[in-house]
Write a protein that binds this DNA or RNA. Sequence first.
DNA 1: ATAAAATCTTTACAGTGTAAAGTTCGTAAG
DNA 2: CTTACGAACTTTACACTGTAAAGATTTTAT
Lengths: 200, 200
Amino acid sequence: MNNHYHHGDLKNALIQAGIEILSREGMEALSLRQVARRAGVSHTAPYAHFADKQALIAAIAAAGYQKLYEALIAAQLSQDDPFARLMGTAHAYLQFALDEPDHFRITFSGVVEAEQDYPDYVEQSKRCFALVVKVVEDCQTGGLFTQADTQLVAVSIWSCIHGFVQLLLAKQLPGSLTAQVSIHDLFNLHLRQVLPIDNR
Amino acid sequence: MNNHYHHGDLKNALIQAGIEILSREGMEALSLRQVARRAGVSHTAPYAHFADKQALIAAIAAAGYQKLYEALIAAQLSQDDPFARLMGTAHAYLQFALDEPDHFRITFSGVVEAEQDYPDYVEQSKRCFALVVKVVEDCQTGGLFTQADTQLVAVSIWSCIHGFVQLLLAKQLPGSLTAQVSIHDLFNLHLRQVLPIDNR
DNA sequence: ATAAAATCTTTACAGTGTAAAGTTCGTAAG
DNA sequence: CTTACGAACTTTACACTGTAAAGATTTTAT
C-alpha cells in the first residue's frame, strides 16, 4: 500500500524540487528542509540519497550543467556555419542565465568545494567545455581562426561570455548595456581577434 | 570605565571581522553571530549598525571593491606605457582574487540584491569600472586601439578577465591551465583584437 | 522464511537570523 | 548640575536551519 515509505524516485524529486525553489524563491530559500517539504517527505529523508547539503547542491549544479549542455547542443544543431554556431552558443549561454539566474549561479558558484567527490558534476562540466572547444575547432578547420592554440582560444571565448553573464547577473555592468543587444556587439568585438579581418 | 558598552568603532570592527572570517574559514562560516563573537560583542549588537545580514555583506563587498580599487591604482601607477598598465590591471585583478578568494567572491556574488539600498557599494563599484574605462581610453588616445566604442571595449576586457577569474575560482577550467602563466597568454590573445597587429 | 539492506520517520541538539524589551552610557537642553 | 533622551549594547525569545541517532517499514538477497 501507499505508505510514506519508498517514494520511488525521491532522489530526482529532490533535485527537481531544489531547482523549482531556486526558480521561484532564489538561493537564500534553498534549504534541505524546504526541499524535503516540497517533495512531501520528512526533513531527514534526503540523507538517504545525499551525504549532506553540499551533495544535493552538487547534484543540482550537475543538472544545471546538463540543461546548459542541451541548450548549447540545440543552438549548435540549428546552424551550419561554424561562426554562426559559435554565436548561437554564446546566446544560448546567456539565455540560460537569464531564464534561470539562480540555477545558473549555483552551478558556477564554486560552492562545490571538493569537486572530485562529485564525479557527475565534473563530467557534466567537462562535456560543456568540450562543446565549446569543438565549435572553436570547427572554426579553425574552416580556416576562420588565425590562432593556433585551440584550448586557449576556447578559454578566452568562454571567459568572455561567462564574465559578461556573471557581471550582468550581479548587476555590475553600466545600466546602459541591455543584455540582448550588447552580447552581440561584445562577441563581434571579442571574436574579431581571432578571425582574419572582416570576412563576415 | 571600559564596560561592554560603546565599543568605539564597532561598525568597522564588524566589517573587518567579517573579512577575516572569509579569509580564514570561508563563506560558509560567515554569520552575524560569528562576526559578533570575533568582535567581542553580543550577537545582536550588529543590528545597531546594520539593518540585517545583507547590509553587512554589502559593506564587506564595498570594502572588497575598495581593496580592489587600491590594487588597480597601484598597478597602474607603476607603469608608464598604457598597454603595460592594462596588463598590470589584469594581473592585479587576478592577484586579488587569488589572495582573498572568498572576499572576492562575495564582492561579486550578486548577493547584494537591492543594490540601490547600498550606495557605498554602488559607488565603489562604479569607481572600479571607471578605472578600467580610463586605462582603455589611455590606450585609445595613445593610438593603440582601432576600436571606437570605449565602453564596449572596456566591458569586453573586464568580462574576459572577470570570467577567467570566476571560472578559475570555481575550478571550472582544465587543470592544465595554471593561473599565473595563462593569464598572460589569455590577455595577449584577447587584446590582440583591438590592437593594430603585432606592435608589441 | 529470514536476515540484511535500503528507505523513510521521529526525536534531539547546536547553530542561525532577527524581533522585542531591558540596560548602560554619552550628550544636549533645561 | 541635573535631567531627559537617544544611541549602543545586552538579554531573552522564537522560528528556522543542518545533521546525528535511533526506530519503523519495506524491499532484496540468501
